[in-house]
Design a binder for these strands. Sequence first.
DNA 1: ATAAAGTGCTATAATTTGTCAAGTGATGAA
DNA 2: TTCATCACTTGACAAATTATAGCACTTTAT
Lengths: 119, 119
Amino acid sequence: MNTEREYCPVHEAIQVLQEKWTMHIVRALLDGPLGFNELGRAVGGCNPATLKVRLDHLEELGILTRTVHSQMPPRTSYELAPAGVDLQHVIDAIDGWGRQHLDRQGAACDEEGEKVAVG
Amino acid sequence: MNTEREYCPVHEAIQVLQEKWTMHIVRALLDGPLGFNELGRAVGGCNPATLKVRLDHLEELGILTRTVHSQMPPRTSYELAPAGVDLQHVIDAIDGWGRQHLDRQGAACDEEGEKVAVG
DNA sequence: ATAAAGTGCTATAATTTGTCAAGTGATGAA
DNA sequence: TTCATCACTTGACAAATTATAGCACTTTAT
């Protein structure tokens, strides 16, 4: 569907970000590098199969980097590349919108250094 | 997956926006109200079944409004509600990021009145 | 009048995508 | 030894998205 009408960076960006889990992954990684399973838990329970696909795609796009620390006892970490760090603005915008239009209670999950008074 | 850990507006917002076509729909509507088929074409060819589901969901969330102008010769228009208009910031952020990190050629689709000097 | 194309949808089936559960080979803790 | 963890892979399955067709009607062209 819509292979490439004229090439539009905004459209492309949306295509990337609307993939399931992608924004959650970026948001989790904004806080610092994580391992595979760690990341899966951080995003709210993404299954390994999908997570692998997303991670590969995001790495391909230069949004994150995969670093293998040890091979035999597998130990890897995923970290945002500069292009990924820049997504902070996008997440911030979503954050702002969400708080304004979706907030029903005292929000209880801040991960980017923004403290929220809950109690 | 992750039914409701603690309720987080950011997480919720991401859940809404990452649904396929949602951001495209918002972006198209940011330019002004559109009809059903018109909108389907504007977002790049979403099929009516999915479009209907998205539109219903977005209406439920108060992001857009559906106005029926005439019933028998069907004529309807979808327009962003205030909560939807506020998503402009999110789209802008994505726009900025996309141009910075995804732009490979002179972009050919600006729909929000923001002219970009490419050369 | 007839045909073709457009309106906003809905129904059905097929494909794509995402999910779960389990397994792999290696290490560390008990 | 057995369980748990790590980073995945595999295969069966469910859910989401898709194409295609159609409805009841208007508009435009012929």
